[in-house]
Design a protein around this nucleic acid. Structure first.
Length: 475
RNA sequence: GCUGGGGUAGUUCAGUUGGUUAGAACGCCUGGUUGUGGACCAGGAGGUCGGCAGUUCGAGUCUGCCCCCCAGUACCA
C-alpha cells in the first residue's frame, strides 16, 4: 500500500448477504416454531444435513460452467472441491442414497440456509433460508395429497386464512406438448415460459414462446421459437382451463387422447378425493392447470400457493413431485415429492398481514441497580422474576445513574422497569414503571415532574405483590 | 448476464458558470437530571464527497476506467 489510509475495517456485510436484527430474528424463530409444530403433527421428521457438500454432489451430471457460476464453490482443505448447498433437496437425495436402511417412505422436514451466487434483488439474497417438507421413496399419489395437506396445515398454523394452495400436474402439460407436436427437448423451455403466466401475463408468454420479446427496460428476451400453430395450441389450452367451470373436464375433452395427460388428470382426481376425505377445506385448495413450475426436474403434481391479500408476494410455498433426483446417486429410482417455503418472503408476508408482530426485546422487566450496595437484593429479585417465568434482566452496564438505566430499557424495548431505592427498601416496597404507558402519557403532558411520576405509569407496591402485579400486567 | 437510474455525515438530502474552512434536518453522544425513558435547554462528535487516474492555478462539481447501491429483466440445475 502506498500510504496508510486507515487501520479500521469497514463494518460491511458481503454483497447479497444480510444481518437479521433481533426484532426480525425473534419473529422468524416464532414463525419457524409454528411451522415445525404443524408438520410434526403430520409425522414429518427433522433432518439436518451439512452446509458444505462435494461439488459433484450438488452438480452431478449438470456440471456445466453455467451452473458452476451460481455456486459458492471453492477448493477446501485436502484439495477437495466443495461448495455451499444451493438448496436442500439435493442433500436429501444424497442422504437417502447413502442410507439404504432408511425406512421408506421417509417424511422429513429441514430448514436451513442455502447460498446462490445470484444477482441480489428486492427480497432476494445470496444467503437465504428455506424450509422444506418432502416424502421420499413412494410414487403413491397419496404422498402428494399429504404434502398439500401439510401446506394447508402450515398456513392455518401461522394464522393465515386467506390463501389458496393451487395444484396441477406436469403430465398434463407434457401431453399437450406432445399433442402440439413440440420437440421433446423444448419441453423444459415451454414449462419455464408458461410458468411466467401470472407474473408477466399472457401476451408476454406467447411472445416468448415464439420469437421473443422486449422487457420494460428495453432488454431483449430470447424466445423458444415455437411455430404459430404450436403456440396457438398452448394458448387454446391455457384459455380454456383458466375460464370458469371444471378445468379437469375441459382438459379431458382437449387431451383425452393423450395418455400422459390422462395420467395427470387421474392423479389430480385422486388428490382431490384424498383431500376431501381428509376434510381439507375446499376453499383452501384449487386445481389450476396453468400452474407448471419453472424448474426442469418436476415430473408429476406441482404445487403453488397464493396469499389472496398479497398476490404481489408471489408463491411463498411451492414444490412438486420429482421422480429422478435420487437416481443420480444410486442405480435405482427413488421417487419423491415435496414443497419448500421461502422463509423470509413468508415472514415479510406475515408481518405485512399483521399475523405476527415485531417484538423489540425478549425481556419484560429490567431490574435497575439503584444502590450498588444492595446488589445482592437486586439479584434476589431478578431470580424471583425468572423463577416465575417472567423474562427479566438486570442492568449490567457501567453507569450507576438511573437515567441511563431507564433509557436503556426504553431503547431496547423492555416494557417494565423495577426501581428499588432506599425509600422502597425501608418500606418493604418496589416501584414498577410501565414504559409503554409512559409513552402514551408523554403525548398528554410536557410537564416533566407530572410525567415522571404519574400514577398511570408507575406504581409503588408491597414487595410481595411484585410477581402478582407483573403477571397481571403481562397477561 | 442485460437495460436504466444513482453514490456528499448514522439517515434523508442541499451544495451556484469549477473557487478559499463541504452544509441542513433528523438521529447519535455529553450535561442540565447519581430517584426516572419522552418534551425542553446548553454543548459535542461524526465526512478519504464510492475508488483510481486524468484535465486545471484550483475538482464534491468536468472526462475515463473500476467498484458498489437501487429498479426492471434473464438464468436458477
Amino acid at each position: 500500500m502506498a500510504k496508510k489510509k486507515t487501520d479500521k475495517v469497514r463494518p460491511q456485510v458481503l454483497k447479497g448477504f444480510r444481518d437479521y436484527p433481533p426484532p426480525e430474528q425473534i419473529a422468524r424463530e416464532t414463525m419457524i416454531g409454528n411451522v415445525r409444530s404443524a408438520v410434526e403433527l403430520m409425522g414429518f421428521l427433522p433432518l439436518q444435513t451439512a452446509s458444505l457438500e462435494l461439488a459433484e454432489t450438488l452438480l452431478g451430471s449438470h456440471y456445466t460452467d453455467d451452473n458452476l457460476a451460481e455456486l459458492f464453490g471453492f477448493v477446501g482443505p485436502d484439495d477437495v472441491n466443495m461448495a455451499l448447498r444451493y438448496e436442500l433437496t439435493v442433500s436429501l437425495a444424497r442422504y437417502v442414497a447413502a442410507n439404504p436402511n432408511l425406512a421408506l417412505p421417509f417424511r422429513r422436514y429441514q430448514y436451513g440456509n442455502v447460498w446462490r451466487v445470484d444477482k441480489p434483488g428486492p427480497g432476494r439474497y445470496r444467503e437465504f433460508m428455506q424450509f422444506d417438507i418432502d416424502i421420499v421413496g413412494t410414487s403413491n399419489i397419496l404422498a402428494d395429497a399429504e404434502i398439500i395437506a401439510a401446506m394447508v396445515a402450515v398456513f392455518d398454523g401461522l394464522g393465515i386464512n386467506n390463501y389458496k394452495v393451487k395444484y396441477s400436474s406436469r403430465k398434463i402439460m407434457n401431453g399437450l406438448i406432445k399433442f402440439a407436436g413440440i420437440d421433446d427437448n423444448k419441453a423444459a423451455d415451454v414449462m419455464r415460459v408458461v410458468d411466467k403466466l401470472n407474473k408477466q401475463g399472457k401476451d408476454a408468454v406467447i411472445a416468448e414462446l415464439g420469437a421473443g420479446r422486449t422487457d420494460r427496460s428495453g432488454d431483449k428476451i430470447k424466445g423458444v421459437g415455437l411455430t404459430d400453430s404450436q403456440i396457438a395450441e398452448i394458448e387454446k389450452f391455457l384459455d380454456s382451463v383458466s375460464g370458469s367451470g371444471n378445468s379437469l373436464e375441459t382438459a379431458e375433452s382437449l387431451l383425452g387422447s393423450v395418455q400422459v395427460s390422462v395420467e395427470g388428470i387421474n392423479d389430480l382426481k385422486a388428490i382431490e378425493s384424498h383431500l376431501s376425505s381428509m376434510n381439507i377445506d375446499k376453499n383452501k385448495t384449487e386445481i389450476d392447470l396453468t400452474i407448471v413450475r419453472g424448474l426442469a426436474y418436476y415430473t408429476g403434481p406441482v404445487f403453488e400457493t397464493v396469499l389472496l391479500d398479497l398476490p404481489e408476494f408471489g408463491s411463498v410455498f411451492s414444490g412438486g413431485r420429482y421422480d429422478n433426483l435420487v437416481s443420480r446417486f444410486v442405480g435405482k429410482q427413488i421417487p419423491g415429492t415435496g414443497a419448500s417455503i421461502g422463509v423470509d418472503r413468508l415472514l415479510a408476508a406475515l408481518i405485512e398481514l399483521k399475523a405476527l408482530k415485531l417484538e423489540q426485546s425478549v425481556s419484560k422487566v429490567l431490574v435497575t441497580v439503584m444502590d450498588p450496595e444492595r446488589l445482592p437484593d437486586y439479584l434476589k429479585m431478578l431470580h424471583q422474576l425468572r423463577e416465575a417465568g417472567i423474562p427479566s434482566e438486570i442492568f449490567v452496564g457501567d453507569s450507576k445513574n438511573i437515567t441511563k438505566q431507564v433509557k436503556y430499557a426504553d431503547k431496547v424495548g423492555i416494557p417494565f422497569v423495577l426501581i428499588v431505592g432506599s425509600n422502597e427498601f425501608e418500606a418493604g416496597q418496589v416501584t414498577i414503571k410501565n414504559l409503554k404507558a409512559g409513552k402514551e402519557k408523554a403525548k398528554e403532558t410536557s410537564e416533566r415532574e407530572e410525567w415522571l411520576k404519574a400514577e398511570e405509569i408507575q406504581v409503588t407496591i408491597s414487595a410481595d405483590k411484585m410477581l402478582e402485579y407483573l403477571k397481571g400486567e403481562l397477561g
